[in-house]
Design a protein around this nucleic acid. Structure first.
Length: 303
DNA sequence: CTCGATCCCTGGACGC
DNA sequence: TGCGTCCAGGGATCGA
């Protein structure tokens, strides 16, 4: 499932193989995962792919109009194409002569005779053409990049939330790019239970989580991501990071630290793998309503 | 603010 | 061999 490292891998691959190419035409089949299919068909042909970047779990393809009088400042204010791979999305260039696999929903014909194809069996992905003026608002909906966030901002984020840490890590408006695998891996490394309330993490725990999250993401990028089901990079190659998983997908298998079996619980609607020994349950059950009586003195004024 | 439930969608795993 | 059922899971949405 493409998360930050997988998307980074694909984006780097596309940057090498299709940046600079002009899109000659666009062919759509299923379009229910595209924000505005006709805008895509209308505005993309004729533009060239200036750069391919990652933004959270999105691929951000910056376009440039070939027409002569466009602002030459290039990447500042062009249109762009946003692509989310969802669970099963693939985006890669192929010779047009090569038959398209099933579930190929978008084909961008390039000026060098290849085709950039988007295939996605489950169509959990998303594609959107964004005119220059609408890009900032779209990107602003998302939180900080976990690899770039400052220590202070990460600590402040943890302190400000009463949600369970696993849910917070998955919240794209808080941090962009973290998904189920890397959330679990970073919590395991940090010895933090997925149901801990974020604001109850100590300063040391928060710092450890930040560093471990960043380390996990960097290592995964170096190994070109995790291939669980069918992730493939832009060159059709699987990643290798799944071999390094210490928690994710290991229910019942021994913890790499203490040998006790890894457990699975559902948090934030997602399977969460953790070691019950190394990652102890929070003391009080999160959100149990009435615990103790309001006790005398101070009710904090909350609003 | 935060939660769980529900839906989207298809293919792979599993049981008989 | 074939069929039915369950499950995975990112994200949007809705009601609590």
């Amino acid at each position: 499932m493409p998360e930050l490292p997988e998307v980074e891998t694909v984006a780097r691959g596309l940057q090498k193989t299709v940046a600079g190419r002009r899109i000659v035409s666009v062919t759509l089949s299923k379009t229910d995962f595209i924000d505005d299919p006709s805008a895509l068909e209308t505005h993309v042909p004729g533009q060239s792919i200036e750069r391919v970047e990652r933004f959270g779990k999105f691929m951000l393809m910056r376009l440039r109009k070939e027409a002569a009088h466009q602002p030459t400042s290039s990447n500042a204010g062009g249109d762009s194409l946003l692509v989310h791979l969802g669970m099963t999305g693939h985006l890669s260039p192929h010779p047009v002569s090569e038959p398209s696999p099933k579930h190929t929903h978008v084909r961008f014909l390039l000026d060098d005779g290849r085709e950039l194809r988007y295939t996605d069996a489950r169509r959990f992905g998303r594609m959107a053409f964004l005119a220059a003026e609408s890009l900032p608002a779209e990107l602003n909906r998302f939180g900080a990049d976990p690899l770039e966030i400052s220590d202070a901002a990460f600590a402040a984020l943890m302190q400000s939330r009463r949600s369970r840490i696993k849910a917070l890590l998955l919240d794209q408006t808080a941090l962009r790019g973290v998904g189920n695998i890397y959330a679990d891996e970073s919590l395991w490394r940090s010895r933090i239970h997925p149901m801990r309330i974020a604001a109850t993490l100590s300063a040391n725990e928060a710092r450890a989580l930040q560093k471990n999250l960043q380390a996990v993401l960097r290592e995964a990028i170096a190994l070109r991501g995790s291939s669980i089901i069918d992730f493939l990079d832009a060159g059709g190659e699987p990643g290798k990071y799944q071999r390094r998983h210490r928690a994710y997908g290991r229910e019942g298998k021994p913890c790499y630290r203490c040998k006790r079996p890894i457990c699975r619980v559902i948090v934030a609607g997602r399977s969460s793998y953790f070691c019950p020994n190394c990652q102890p349950r929070p003391r009080s059950r999160p959100r149990q309503g009435k615990r103790r009586k309001p006790v005398t003195a101070g009710r904090k004024r909350t609003s």
